[in-house]
Simulated scan of single mutants.
Amino acid sequence: MKIESKHVVSLTYDLYVDKDGTEEFVEKATEEQPLTFLYGAGQMLPKFEENLSSLSTGDAYDFRLSAADAYGEYDEEAVANLPKEMFDGTDMPEIGSILPLQDNQGHRFQGQVVSIAEDSVIVDLNHPMAGQELHFKGTILNVRPANEEEMAHGHAHGPDGHHHH
């Protein structure tokens, strides 16, 4: 079956990023634990879906996404100084640790602590993969039409359409 909008796709992937000309392995999805998603529902990177659009069950794929098509270019400005008072009564975060943050609109996001100054903690708000070219390769395991419940919820309920708890 060919991948189309409103279909549930299960696939394996190996993800590599290009770092200074060498490819570094980041993560993978296996046949035992595939990535399953509702195609066309806006959960995945648009260019990721575009690259899969002509494939069918059993097809192998291998493509790259530029930083701009993936998580964006690295933004030097996307750095926040958090006042140390925010951490009163809690342990000071360590450099390199990831902090769960929330903006005034209630959106949750993460920042990585890059340094700790006298009165503030400096946090990089870029996505960890910002500025990096992504290289995906894998195989399409399964493609099926989404069921009504999945369409209503806007996401896949696992490879066979049922919730797993």
Rank of each mutant, 00 (worst) to 15 (best):
N147S: 06
G58Q: 10
D69S: 05
F136H: 01
A60S: 15
V143F: 05
N104I: 12
G106N: 10
N81P: 06
G106F: 08
P128N: 10
A130W: 04
D59T: 13
S56R: 12
G96T: 02
A156L: 08
V123F: 05
G158A: 06
T30M: 08
S5A: 10
A67G: 11
L125M: 11
A29G: 13
I122E: 15
D59G: 02
S10L: 03
V26D: 02
S66R: 07
M1K: 09
R144I: 04
G106L: 10
A152F: 09
Q43P: 04
E31V: 05
G21E: 10
P128F: 02
L134F: 03
D88Y: 06
S53L: 01
T36C: 11
A70H: 04
E77W: 08
F136V: 00
E76C: 04
E73H: 08
G72L: 03
D103R: 14
V8H: 12
K2Y: 10
N51K: 14
R64Y: 10
L101I: 07
S5W: 04
M86Y: 14
F109D: 13
T36G: 10
E73C: 04
A68I: 01
V26C: 01
F48W: 05
L134C: 11
V123D: 12
V121H: 08
I3N: 13
D18G: 02
E24M: 03
E23W: 14
E23P: 11
D62A: 09
K2I: 10
Y16R: 02
N51V: 05
T57I: 08
D75Q: 06
A70G: 14
L55Y: 14
P100W: 09
G154I: 03
Q112M: 15
G72W: 00
Q132T: 00
G154N: 13
M151K: 14
N147I: 13
G40Q: 02
V17S: 12
H162S: 07
L45M: 05
I116H: 08
A68N: 06
S120W: 08
V121T: 13
E149P: 05
T139D: 05
G89D: 15
D20P: 04
L125H: 01
D69W: 00
D124T: 03
M44I: 02
N104Y: 08
M92D: 15
R108N: 13
H127A: 00
L101Y: 12
D14W: 02
M44V: 02
Q132S: 15
P159M: 12
L52F: 00
K6P: 05
I122W: 10
R144C: 10
V17K: 12
L125R: 00
